[in-house]
Design a protein around this nucleic acid. Structure first.
Lengths: 135, 135
DNA sequence: CAGTAAATCTACCAGTATGGTATACAATAT
DNA sequence: ATATTGTATACCATACTGGTAGATTTACTG
């Protein structure tokens, strides 16, 4: 729903990779970001399966960005670890019975307000990429 | 942080009071909104101490809005039950060490991004009052 | 002034989400 | 072959959220 600690860590990690520009192993990332090794690994896996970064096994293995820093936005990273942003239940949960006070279309007027705000937040997060962030 | 179920209920309750325009007891409010009586009472107490509604004890007691519907905004109600909206930790928790990547002022650049978005959401929620909502 | 209908205060409980950890396994460079 | 790296799965503790209960206080009504 909102930006959890895990998502915050994920942003730090991607920023770390963007700033270094080379392949880094989990240990180095953990040291640089201050996120414990174990928890880093967990987040790194999510970022890999979300297509934000790429991983390499074995000696000399590690992690790299999957795209140019300029092609990765804050929204990409945050959504990867915690799903699409939604201000309120009725935005993300389609069948949530939010209120009896429905308009002529049977949709409560809060839906639109909350959905609009959620969209606004997503747009703002999408407008920031990691090329700007490492400058 | 975000809009919880409790805040959603609170909005329904205030809307119910705004729509009826008269003093209502908890039982009636519970029936109208579909929120259980006990949980309604809990939320109503928060709204009272937050100054959104007024309460009256004894027979013929109940709850009324403390102000005109047009003077009460969505933000008033939501903030009353769950505190000021903040997208991320570093916006609400002043001493949160969000990142090593600080700018010349010692403040990480995410602070500003997150704080701006949080403010935007607050503004949007403040722009909606209950006079519009009951039309 | 007694009785009843309301709200209030305090406390508790259960389910879920979040933050964090452990163990066993798979792949790769040298 | 082996050390070095990531992968998969599973688990645990704590905090937050949603929901409930009982005893108390206030005020209207007859």
């Amino acid at each position: 729903m909102h930006i959890t600690l895990e998502a915050d860590y994920a942003v730090r990690i991607v920023q770390c990779l963007a700033q270094n520009g080379t392949r880094l192993d989990a240990k180095k990332i953990s040291d640089d970001t201050g996120v414990t090794l174990r928890f880093s690994l967990k987040i790194l896996r999510k970022l890999v399966s979300g297509g934000v970064i790429k991983s390499y096994k074995g000696t000399k293995g590690g992690y790299e960005l999957a795209k140019e820093p300029g092609q990765i936005t804050l929204a990409d990273v945050i959504e990867t670890v915690e799903g699409k942003y939604a201000l309120a239940r009725c935005v993300s949960e389609h069948d949530y019975q939010c209120n009896r006070n429905t308009d002529s279309c049977g949709i409560c007027r809060f839906h639109k307000i909350y959905a609009d705000i959620s969209q606004l937040v997503q747009d703002k997060l999408n407008a920031v990429n990691f090329e700007e962030l490492i400058k």
